[in-house]
Design a protein around this nucleic acid. Structure first.
Lengths: 184, 184
DNA sequence: ATATAACTACCTACTAGTTGGTAGGCAAAT
DNA sequence: ATTTGCCTACCAACTAGTAGGTAGTTATAT
């Protein structure tokens, strides 16, 4: 892994651990054992790093989407949920949730990329649900987009709330999301 | 309103606007036209102010619970949802959501009070749902607690995600939450 | 082959501004 | 006489960001 990639990874972890405004270049420099100025060599400003962190997530989501292309909706749903599963394992929150709170303090470019990420996930899940309903494997009464929004907010919120109420609540929500789709 | 109350209110607004780590005593002093040191007279540390902001929310939720005591579950549900409606109107996010992201940077006492607030809301909504189901006005297959978690994460997440995807998504989620309870 | 120019990836050392927090004073109310 | 509620004036620590240097790599010209 290049230093540049390591900085992005660390930035990502810090944002989803502590929040964008709580981490500093010092945190990264300390952890990667390089100097503050070296981070500025790779990323002129903190906002530039922030944008690249979001772009990295966009890339990973696109990769995940491709990796399950052509598979049945159930497999795609599992892939979608795996994003939140791994985040829960790390005891972090999702990027969209973390940055949505700090949204009024981040640069326009970062906000724009974040909206792009959020929309990409929403459009993907909407399509999965619509296909699943057509094929008779998923059942729901709302529009596919609204149902997608509800599942996304369930998972995003589950990561946040379960930090306070306990991990088992995350899994209770996760299981209920799947069950609801199969037996309505 | 006393200066102390004004500081708490401003702190609350700033936390739910920008996040805990993005606001400073300077923001408050500027806005209330008092000096930094005057805020420290009322609250020894930033964490002390944070705790009081959370306590204020606990107080308001307790007041809201009392105000609909003895009413039918539908009225109580409306009261619950009104918390998020007014937050949406202010274009802010809810306190639990905002502080859950910053959780690893806040003092233990603040975390403790926040967990208390989250639990109070969860227990209240769980009871509303259980009562509503028993009386035949609400329908759902999950346990009352899981259903409550799902609705809370829907509303908390709706406030955050709709900052990126558009306000109409907040209302789509809100309406779907109500509809789901009435027709399953 | 070799000198040179340009680039990469870091470094030391610094700055201006902001942060939460403190010491001590002072006027008005109790 | 003491407490309340604010003030001025300060501070140490931390913030993102800059200036300028250096050792090693790569590309180009002679």
């Amino acid at each position: 892994m290049t230093t540049r990639e390591a900085i992005i990874l660390k930035g990502d972890h810090l944002i989803r651990d502590k929040g964008y405004n709580a981490f500093s270049f010092y945190d990264i420099s300390k952890s990667l054992k390089i100097k503050n100025a070296s981070i500025h060599y790779h990323f002129a400003t903190k906002a530039d790093l922030g944008v690249e962190v979001v772009n990295q997530h966009i890339f990973l989501v696109e990769q995940l989407i491709k990796s399950v292309e052509g598979r049945v909706p159930e497999v795609k749903l599992k892939a979608f949920l795996s994003i939140y599963d791994s985040t829960k394992q790390e005891e972090r929150v999702c990027l969209v949730g973390s940055l949505a709170t700090d949204l009024k303090t981040v640069e326009p470019k970062m906000k724009k990329q974040l909206a792009l990420l959020a929309n990409k996930i929403l459009v993907w899940l909407t399509q999965i649900l619509a296909d699943g309903k057509r094929e008779g494997v998923f059942m729901f009464r709302e529009t596919a987009r609204t149902k997608a929004l509800m599942i996304i907010t369930n998972m995003l919120g589950a990561l946040q709330v379960s930090r306070l109420t306990g991990s088992k609540d995350f899994f209770a929500i996760r299981e209920a999301v799947i069950r609801q789709l199969k037996e309505k």
